[in-house]
Nucleic acid binder design. Structure first.
Length: 539
DNA sequence: GCCGTTTTCGGCCCGACTGTTTTCAGTCG
């Protein structure tokens, strides 16, 4: 599928147009179209062949024509021309916090700055302050921002952000005058990575709270400090924003700062249709300008005629339409999880015994747990020989005799070899209660080979499930080059389960694929891939 | 450049903060 390619080129169009000082709505239009291309599940080439490009949200005549040009010729003339006319370093300057298109354009025109290094030099040589509305402080801020940019880590995985957020919340709870407290933003929405950590609080003494906040021991730098908004840096590069708001507006503020941006834009549109203007402070009736305040987020949605939409699905991917039709999905709660079908024990590379894993699973309230140790192909992970696997199955059978209120399933995480064959014979696999198949090697195969390889595993009658199906590691490794659509079709046909691997760096399948599975009738299992008792908590 | 349950033109979320200014432009979320 060329969806990502098309999305990338549209994103670049947005960046390039932004620098050209053009119509900012045009920039937004390209980015909206890019996002649509990125998240749509149909193959954009198919959509084009059916003449349906303009049905894609945010794609109109002009962008449709450019997409068509790209799919037909592999080129987009306007894009290529913009790239040619724009110094390559200019786009990167957009990533320096505090610099926007206007400033970059001026720096470029007046000082000839077209890269981060050139900007750094200009600031050090005090040339930046010669520009109108620029002074010594601006220069210092630019240098600081460049330094932060250079040592930036990419977005932080959620599991790294969680302990930081917990520490911040614990500290704020101890400050006198702090009343209500909540996280917001992508952290509250449970995104797989977060850019910064947003915290909201109510207090009658915001000045004192802000003062205490910037004195928090973990604070390394203060970016902005105001009476309602303060931003600090902790852990070298993690930005934490604290906002203090009136308690009477807490509901609208929490809604607003939880986002996502697209969700909020759509929600504001609905408010307008109903005769209100929605801001973070209130819902204002358009006729008489009467302001309505909400302390609770639920009441904001209710006033707009909508059921409460959980933060985890506020991405403008159909949840508002579903809410209007009273057809919101019911999100799965931890308490509904009945078992974990993919964990390891000390028979291969796990740290705990099968008994210990079983006890921990029972304590977690599970009914069953499948011990799926590695196969011989993964000798580095202590993969079990066929004899050892048979021994383990026997051991589990006996163990179950003595266990109460928990069933241990004898399983395996069998390696899918480069040619699609599995690492155990069918006879051995037939004896397992649960067969989880996964790829661990030859990850760079071409799409057709990789797709066939996984489908071969899916079609094996003994394989119950495919573990971490796309193989991506967040921030480290891209997904395999695989036609997941074809894999899922095979899975739907054979009844093979796809895993949602809960390991924080995997989260594989991700939310998007999980939804597609549901639509296609493919079963999903949420597993932790735990290698220890503690790992079970990642559920 | 997109879009339409009053619209095919005229909107497109909106308020806080900063640095540099005496009134605001630019950026951010």
């Amino acid at each position: 599928m060329k969806n990502y390619e098309v999305a990338r080129i549209l994103w670049e169009m947005g960046d390039l147009l932004e620098l050209r000082d053009g119509n900012r709505f045009k920039v937004v239009a390209y980015r909206k179209a890019a996002r649509s291309a990125e998240t749509m599940k149909d193959d954009i080439e198919e959509v084009w062949r059916e003449g349906e490009l303009e049905t894609i949200p945010g794609v109109g005549k002009a962008i449709a024509k450019k997409i068509e040009e790209y799919l037909e010729t592999g080129k987009m003339e306007t894009h290529d021309r913009l790239v040619e006319e724009t110094p390559p370093g200019l786009v990167e300057l957009l990533l320096i916090s505090g610099l926007g298109p206007k400033t970059i354009s001026r720096l470029h025109k007046k000082l000839g700055v077209s890269s981060i290094d050139e900007l750094e030099r200009a600031a050090r040589e005090h040339r930046v302050r010669r520009l109108p509305r620029m002074g010594a402080t601006s220069e210092a801020n630019i240098l600081k921002a460049i330094e932060r940019y250079k040592k930036r880590s990419s977005r932080i995985p959620l599991n790294v952000a969680v302990p930081i957020a917990e520490e911040v919340l614990a500290y704020l709870k101890g400050i006198e005058g702090v009343e209500r407290l909540s996280t917001a933003g992508s952290f509250r929405r449970g995104r797989e990575t977060v850019g910064d950590i947003d915290v909201l609080a109510t207090s009658t003494r915001p000045g004192d709270v802000m003062k205490a906040f910037v004195k928090m021991p973990m604070v390394e730098d203060v970016l902005v400090k105001g009476s309602t908004k303060t931003s600090v840096i902790v852990n070298e590069t993690v930005q934490v924003d604290l906002r203090i708001v009136d308690s009477r507006s807490f509901g609208t503020v929490l809604q607003y700062f939880t986002g996502s941006k697209d969700h909020n834009v759509k929600l504001r549109g609905i408010a307008l249709q109903k005769g209100y203007s929605l801001s973070e402070y209130s819902l204002t009736r358009l006729g008489d300008q009467v302001e309505l305040f909400f302390e609770r987020e639920e009441d904001v949605y209710a006033r707009l005629g909508l059921p409460y939409i959980p933060p985890e699905i506020r991405e403008d991917e159909g949840e508002i339409e579903a809410a209007m039709a009273d057809a919101l999905p019911k999100l799965i709660e931890r308490s509904e999880i009945r078992g974990d079908l993919h964990v390891h024990s000390d028979w291969s590379d796990g740290r705990n015994t099968i008994e210990e894993m079983a006890e921990a699973a029972k304590a977690a309230g599970y009914e069953y747990i499948a011990i799926c140790d590695h196969s011989p192909g993964l000798s580095i992970a202590g993969g079990l020989s066929e004899e050892r696997l048979l021994e383990k199955i026997e051991f589990v059978r006996e163990l179950n005799e003595s266990l109460e209120k928990i069933t241990v399933l004898a399983g395996t995480e069998v390696d899918i070899r480069a040619d699609g064959r599995l690492d155990y014979s069918d006879e051995i696999l037939a004896r397992c209660d649960v067969v989880v198949a996964a790829i661990h090697s030859a990850r760079n195969q071409k799409s057709r080979i990789m797709t066939n390889r996984i489908i071969t595993a899916v079609e094996n009658e003994h394989v119950d499930m495919i573990a971490h199906p796309t193989g991506r590691i967040i921030g480290v490794r891209e997904p395999y080059d695989v036609d997941m659509g074809a894999v899922l079709e095979a899975a739907a046909r054979t009844g093979t389960v796809m895993e949602i691997n809960a390991y924080p760096a995997r989260l594989d399948l991700n939310d998007r694929w999980a939804r597609i599975c549901k639509e296609m009738g493919v079963k999903l299992a949420i597993n932790t891939d735990a290698h220890s008792v503690q790992g079970l908590d990642l559920m």
